[in-house]
């Protein structure tokens, strides 16, 4: 008979294969809360007095992160303002926005909904319509390889424009940190994906907390970085949170998804593989960063004024390309 390793309750909801620990509903919720707050201290993600901009999609990850960080807000350690980005994905985003609103209303947290349309004049759906297969030389990084003439994935635009909006809204709100719901699966995928693509510039930026030398970029934190996605899903159900359970219609196009499936497949027989990938990476990262961080000062994008290595930031180079 399996009983809770902490309290002896006979109704367990999880058996952690890597640690042999069994947990009941209450002890599981408690253990996740503790782990997230412990990591927050360990990696110094937050300081007393921080104003945190929570990137709240309404999905399980960001809703769980919001609820756990809210415990720090209730103790007056931090302040939180939530933002939901409406990329303009018809038939998908609407429900997430409503769920994000409901969560912030329940917790009494200030919430803004901002859209690609209002900041960039077009929705993600429209951006994809404008895409073409021509080569361009506006990208300063190495995400586009020679001879690669495929149109960019929606995820590429989405990532670039979402980062831009988050940074802008953080400035508008006077936020000192931007928190996202990235989980262990996301992080492991990013490590493997960037390594396999040879995208070292992006690889060395992966971590619990962004370390930009440029003060104009608000520091980003990932409080759920060491929690497996499955456990976040279980937490959302166990704590009876209102979450948007749906998949983005564009996710199927991405290389990230292939990598994600590959890692999940491996995890079935090797339940610690994501933890070890993360641990190993975190160990070599300081060395990689020291050796490989691009030199040179960050200037300003001539179009939007955001910090940028080139004349135009990535968001603006896409936008100019469409004009």
């Amino acid at each position: 008979m399996n009983t809770c390793s902490k309290c002896g309750n006979q109704q367990i909801i999880i058996q952690k294969k890597h640690s042999g620990q069994n947990l009941c509903q209450e002890c599981f919720i408690e253990s996740i809360n503790e782990k997230v707050l412990k990591d927050t201290r360990k990696y110094k993600l937050l300081e007393k007095g921080d104003k945190v901009l929570m990137a709240l999609s309404g999905g399980k990850d960001s809703v769980v992160a919001l609820h756990i960080l809210n415990s720090l807000r209730e103790k007056n350690i931090i302040d939180i303002v939530a933002v939901t980005i409406d990329e303009g994905i018809k038939g998908y985003r609407e429900e997430g926005i409503e769920i994000a609103k409901a969560n912030t209303r329940t917790l009494g947290i200030k919430h803004r909904v901002v859209s690609f349309k209002e900041y960039f004049g077009r929705t993600l759906d429209e951006m994809r319509g404008q895409d073409d297969t021509r080569q361009d030389d506006t990208r300063q990084d190495d995400t586009r390889r020679q001879g690669d003439t495929e149109p960019r994935h929606a995820c590429t635009y989405c990532g670039v424009f979402r980062r831009w909006i988050l940074n802008r809204v953080a400035q508008e709100e006077g936020a000192t940190k931007i928190a996202t719901g990235h989980n262990l699966d996301d992080e492991t995928q990013s490590i493997l994906m960037n390594y396999l693509e040879g995208n070292i510039n992006n690889l060395i930026r992966i971590g619990p907390k962004s370390e930009s030398r440029d003060e104009r970029f608000t520091v980003k934190i990932k409080p759920l970085r060491e929690i497996p996605e499955k456990e976040i899903g279980l937490y959302a159900i166990a704590a009876d949170l209102n979450v948007h359970l749906a998949g983005c219609p564009y996710a199927g196009e991405s290389f990230r998804r292939e990598i994600g499936e590959f890692i999940k497949e491996l995890s079935r027989d090797h339940p610690t593989i994501m933890y070890s990938t993360l641990r190993g990476f975190d160990k070599i990262k300081p060395i990689l960063k020291k050796e490989l961080t691009p030199k040179g000062n960050t200037g300003e994008c001539r179009r939007c004024g955001e910090p940028s290595a080139g004349e135009l930031c990535k968001a603006c180079s896409f936008l100019e390309g469409w004009e």
Binding site: E229, L245, A251, G252, G260
Partner: peptide, 8 residues
């Protein structure tokens, strides 16, 4: 049966 992981 509640689907919580959607991939992507």
């Amino acid at each position: 049966i509640i689907k919580v992981i959607f991939g992507g």
